[in-house]
Measured scan of single mutants.
Amino acid sequence: MAAGGDHGSPDSYRSPLASRYASPEMCFVFSDRYKFRTWRQLWLWLAEAEQTLGLPITDEQIQEMKSNLENIDFKMAAEEEKRLRHDVMAHVHTFGHCCPKAAGIIHLGATSCYVGDNTDLIILRNALDLLLPKLARVISRLADFAKERASLPTLGFTHFQPAQLTTVGKRCCLWIQDLCMDLQNLKRVRDDLRFRGVKGTTGTQASFLQLFEGDDHKVEQLDKMVTEKAGFKRAFIITGQTYTRKVDIEVLSVLASLGASVHKICTDIRLLANLKEMEEPFEKQQIGSSAMPYKRNPMRSERCCSLARHLMTLVMDPLQTASVQWFERTLDDSANRRICLAEAFLTADTILNTLQNISEGLVVYPKVIERRIRQELPFMATENIIMAMVKAGGSRQDCHEKIRVLSQQAASVVKQEGGDNDLIERIQVDAYFSPIHSQLDHLLDPSSFTGRASQQVQRFLEEEVYPLLKPYESVMKVKAELCL
């Protein structure tokens, strides 16, 4: 049975990233139509530049190519590739079939990587351009969430054990800070992308030097003109047959890092959902379990974690691919890159769409948070109580021993009897502590235990987050809708 299948058929496997999760716009960027249309555009740009620099290419040939950029006979191309065992030459023939007058000058002087690699770089750039505003929107939604809850005390956790208090907004800023680093890295790697350009079979530009009869300047002009037509500021000066596969490492490393950030955020949300302090959106008709109707599973956060793990592992592909590119190139890269580049971007696209949807509907339960604080705060307040007693004339050592005994009794009630923490009640009825009984409410005010959390939130948002989001103001209103 021949390899390949009808990918629109229910009898043929289709990647869930495309069929179930990723956005239509990201799927289109990695589609065959987008790819092969870009090949034709690159052939047109090459012909236009070659004509401008004096090669015998007519206006009629150029116009014929322009008129057929979208006229792609995919069936013919597939048949040609089956016959020739070469995808680029299959599309040269297919393009030439609908451009008979231009057929002889299509791909003039070029090698397969002229269309293959340059198209990949265009796709990487455009895919990054799709991700950047999506990530900015996630940051914006979380920034709104953090600002609104900047002063809401909550129990902090280290080692997932109760620690000092923080605020809900401050905790959210930990998430935002990681995503801001990801946004900066995505922008950097996007701006650092260079075009492969017009380089020939081993990167020496020998074929173009021959076409222009040894004119170095025209060869350099050709490279520059096509690079500018493709919208790049610069091209690699040095290439082998391909652009260095280190570029793929750079791009997928940034995406993998984004995956790590999203995994951490969504894990926190899942843990908070278990504590009943916070939940992701839950639709009115949504079913959490087929057997347990009360369940409210954090399905979206779980999906993000599941896909983020996949995204983090994909960076190993370009690392290994770059390491086995012998001399000017081997074909070890080809099949692998067809999979890992598309999957990385479709996965990143999915987790950003999902995280935006989550961040637009996060639900906080202040009463649950308050109750958990009441359970733990008495123990945390013991040092403040000791200091207040010393100020009232008591002995630190005597007070410490009193607190120690009462704390152990209260802990026994919590752990052995399943009761509430009654340390404060014990202190309130103990005559030894009568000098500070009137101060206990103040000493137990949760806001006095959150330090500068709310001020940190305000400063972080104003100095770091809002300036970073400013270039994306025009796209901030787009909502994230999930079908599944």
Rank of each mutant, 00 (worst) to 15 (best):
T202L: 06
E280M: 00
R190C: 11
S434D: 10
L55I: 10
P378C: 07
R234S: 12
Q320D: 00
L444P: 02
E280R: 01
S395R: 08
S407N: 05
V414A: 02
K276W: 05
I339D: 06
F157K: 09
Q41C: 13
F379Q: 01
D223L: 05
E60I: 08
L314Q: 11
L44K: 04
R245D: 05
V363L: 13
H7V: 12
R396N: 04
D420H: 15
V475F: 15
Y294E: 03
I122C: 08
M380G: 03
T347P: 06
T202P: 03
R149P: 02
M76E: 14
Q164G: 01
E60N: 08
R171H: 08
G54Q: 03
K75W: 15
L124G: 03
H217D: 09
A335N: 02
F160T: 12
H310F: 05
G4F: 15
P162V: 11
I424Q: 13
T94M: 12
Q210F: 02
C340K: 03
I373V: 11
A127R: 01
Y114F: 06
R329L: 01
H86A: 03
L155N: 04
K134Q: 14
K218S: 07
L423H: 09
E328V: 01
Y243T: 11
A273W: 03
L423A: 06
T242Q: 12
P10W: 12
T158G: 02
I386S: 05
I265N: 07
S334V: 04
R452E: 09
P133D: 09
A47I: 00
G418Q: 00
D332K: 01
G104D: 05
F345R: 03
T202F: 02
I57L: 04
F208S: 03
P467E: 13
D178W: 13
N68G: 06
D129G: 15
N274S: 12
S301D: 08
S12D: 05
R245N: 02
K199D: 04
T239D: 07
T167I: 03
T154V: 08
K367M: 04
S359T: 00
V247P: 03
I403Q: 02
S448V: 11
D192S: 09
V315S: 09
E213M: 05
I265F: 11
A18T: 10
F327H: 11
C172S: 09
R309K: 09
K35I: 09
A453H: 05
H442D: 15
T227V: 06
G200I: 08
L377I: 15
G156R: 03
L174F: 15
N353F: 01
Q408A: 12
P10F: 07
L124R: 02
T350P: 11
T119G: 06
R404M: 09
L258D: 01
P162T: 03
R371V: 01
N384M: 06
N421I: 12
Y13T: 10
Q184P: 10
K246Y: 00
R137M: 12
I249C: 07
D11C: 15
W43A: 01
C266K: 05
L423E: 08
N126S: 15
Q375M: 04
D398P: 09
M292V: 02
V324R: 01
G394M: 12
I122A: 04
A256I: 00
F74A: 02
S395K: 08
Q241A: 01
L346Q: 07
V92T: 14
D441L: 09
E360I: 11
R309Y: 01
R245V: 01
A291W: 11
R40W: 08
R188N: 04
I386P: 01
G5Q: 09
P366F: 02
H7N: 13
L362F: 05
C98A: 12
P153V: 12
N118M: 03
L183R: 05
D32L: 12
E25M: 09
R125E: 08
Q210E: 15
R337H: 10
V390W: 07
C27S: 03
G200Q: 13
T204G: 13
A103I: 10
R404Q: 12
D129N: 11
Q409Y: 13
Q241T: 03
E425M: 09
T166A: 04
I105N: 15
L341T: 10
H310N: 08
M89W: 01
I373P: 03
D349H: 07
E343Q: 12
P100G: 05
I351L: 10
L272C: 06
A3G: 13
Q409E: 11
F36E: 15
K477P: 14
G451N: 00
F236S: 07
M26A: 06
I139V: 13
D430C: 08
V465L: 12
K101F: 15
F195S: 08
I339W: 06
D317W: 04
G419D: 03
A260C: 04
I237E: 08
K470V: 13
E463A: 13
P56L: 09
Y114L: 00
P153H: 05
A47K: 04
A3P: 04
L53W: 03
G393A: 08
I369S: 10
Q375A: 14
I427N: 07
L193H: 00
D178I: 05
K229R: 11
I106R: 01
A47V: 07
V390S: 07
H437K: 11
F74I: 14
T354E: 09
A411F: 00
G5D: 07
T227P: 05
R404S: 09
A103N: 13
E383T: 07
R337P: 00
A322E: 11
V29W: 14
L377T: 02
K233G: 10
I62F: 06
R270H: 14
R125S: 08
T354R: 02
E328A: 05
C399T: 13
T242I: 09
I176K: 05
S31R: 06
R452G: 11
R20P: 03
E360V: 10
R270F: 00
I106M: 03
E328I: 03
L469E: 14
R459M: 15
R337F: 01
T321R: 02
L346A: 10
I249W: 01
E370A: 02
D223Q: 14
E228K: 13
S261N: 01
A102Y: 02
R337A: 00
V457T: 15
R374E: 04
A410P: 03
G96E: 11
H442V: 14
C173S: 12
A163S: 14
I238A: 01
E462R: 13
A230F: 00
T166D: 03
Q205I: 10
R396K: 13
P446I: 07
P298E: 05
E464P: 14
G259P: 07
D445W: 10
I57E: 01
T111G: 04
I238S: 05
I358N: 06
Y13I: 13
C399N: 10
S306H: 00
S301H: 15
R372P: 10
N353H: 07
E343C: 08
F327S: 07
T350C: 11
N421M: 04
V390N: 01
L440A: 11
K284I: 15
K233W: 10
K470P: 09
D317N: 08
L319E: 03
P298R: 01
V429T: 11
T354S: 11
H400A: 06
A102C: 06
L444H: 14
V138E: 15
D120T: 09
S289C: 00
C113F: 02
R374Q: 10
E370C: 09
R125V: 08
C304H: 13
H217V: 12
A235W: 13
V368G: 04
R338F: 01
L440P: 14
C98H: 08
K170Q: 10
M65S: 09
A381H: 14
F345I: 09
